[in-house]
Amino acid sequence: MSASANVEVNINDCAKADPEKLAAFEKHVAEGGLIEPNDWMPEAYRSLMLRMAEHHANSEIVGALPEGEWITKAPSLLRKLALTAKVQDEVGHGQMLYEVAQDLGKTRNAMLRDLITGVTKYHNCFNYPCPTWADICMIAWLIDGAAILNQGTLAHGSFGPYIRTMRRINMEEAFHFKHGEDMVLTLMSGTDKQKQMAQEAFDRWWDPSLAFFGPNDRPDERERPAMKWRMKTATNDELRQKFVNRFAPAAMATGLVINVCKKDADGLVVSKKPDPLLKHNEETGNWDFTQPDWDEFIKVIRGNGPCNKDRLALRRFSYEQGEWVRRAILDGATDAPCNN
């Protein structure tokens, strides 16, 4: 469902690389060439690409958790089937992305262990609560919509296995988005109670959707490794603006109001007012909007969000309850690539 290239890498590692090889590598990437796992690459590129793919894979399988909890409560046969298929897709995306990361030198088991021990991270947006069915609708619409915008640009990156995986994932994300859009439209065409439920969920998910793309750009954004080596092809702020341009009018067309909200420690809205900055700017052609609460974003990313502990606890439970199965099937080889 989500990818973020906001992982850091020490560009000075390149100082250790053979200058001729590095120059040839950078020329190849700048000309639009692809890098394959067995090609020469600077260690910093391998390290950054591994961390991107691992972070993305982690996000897919942690992202399956909040939606997975609502499969058994889905209110119709169609929604139940669609949600099971969607969450299954997310797990499948995780499986494909762990394979991409494995090719860069880390076993799946090591990645799963690092995830549950907090050594590595997953996307911040999954640390927010989903108290109602409408939250599931908003995740599929807004978060999958944001993921499509983000991953659409990542599919033009430089690492061959990752971009091929992105292209495949993006086709499935398009279905997820349609599924989300249909659920939101159904609620917004329904009873007053359903509309209220949708507005309240929208209030909870608008800010995390804006923050989905990561912090504001730095002045040297385009000189940083992720963009210089074409792992990312658009900046966070560019993607965020594209998202607002698309979703602000779409939300308003359904009758939803875009609010600036204050939330409590549980991630629930305690007060709100219509976004005072929201308007279509004729000069720029963009929609102006209020930035998400970046202080809250930092707090959540440091592990103090409403659901960080619950999400990790469930992943840890999943890992531990399955250990005996993996031991039985893999004959103890729980670190074998591709098999655990």
Binding site: G68, I71, T72, T84, V87, Q88, V91, Q95, F317, S318
Partner: peptide
Amino acid sequence: SDWTGIAPILEADIAFSSLAQDDI
């Protein structure tokens, strides 16, 4: 479908979800 997202092995997770979808 309780197992969707938390089965012991990712491949088993995906397969079990398919079976759950079939049954539903």
